[in-house]
């Protein structure tokens, strides 16, 4: 398989949990922490851990506020997060194309120059 697109895949997004968070935030401009947790069926700790990683990468903005005197944590995708996600999906599509074209047998796959 042509390894170039695979090597370009963003490791931050590539992890299953973070990919789920990014996908959900692409579909909704912003999501409350609890709704995201329920949608992705994650534990609070797991989601918090992934949220921090994405926040540190600058892909997700986290805002904390109060609603009915209770804290509300909301996640939103940043501009660079959206760009990184689109790039990730484009690379995945490219990998799918390569796999369809050449199959998975190494002999059929052209070597990377």
């Amino acid at each position: 398989m042509n390894a170039e697109p695979f090597l370009q895949l963003d490791r931050v997004i590539h992890e299953k949990g973070r990919l789920g968070i990014m996908s959900a935030l692409m579909a909704r401009p912003q999501m409350p922490f609890t709704e995201l947790r329920d949608l992705l069926q994650m534990t609070d700790g797991n989601l918090t851990s992934h949220m921090r990683t994405l926040q540190e990468a600058g892909y997700v903005a986290v805002s904390k506020s109060f609603q009915n005197n209770r804290p509300l944590t909301t996640l939103a995708l940043t501009g660079s997060g959206e760009k990184a996600f689109r790039n990730y999906v484009a690379l995945l599509a490219e990998i799918v194309e390569i796999t369809r074209e050449f199959g998975t047998e190494p002999a059929k796959v052209p070597a990377v120059k």
Binding site: K16, L19, G20, S23, A24, L25, M26, A27, R28, M31, L39, L40, V89, L92, A93, V96, T99
Partner: peptide
Amino acid sequence: EENLQVIRTIMERA
């Protein structure tokens, strides 16, 4: 392909 399908499903659900 599976990853793309996961993305599609989550985006639809969200």
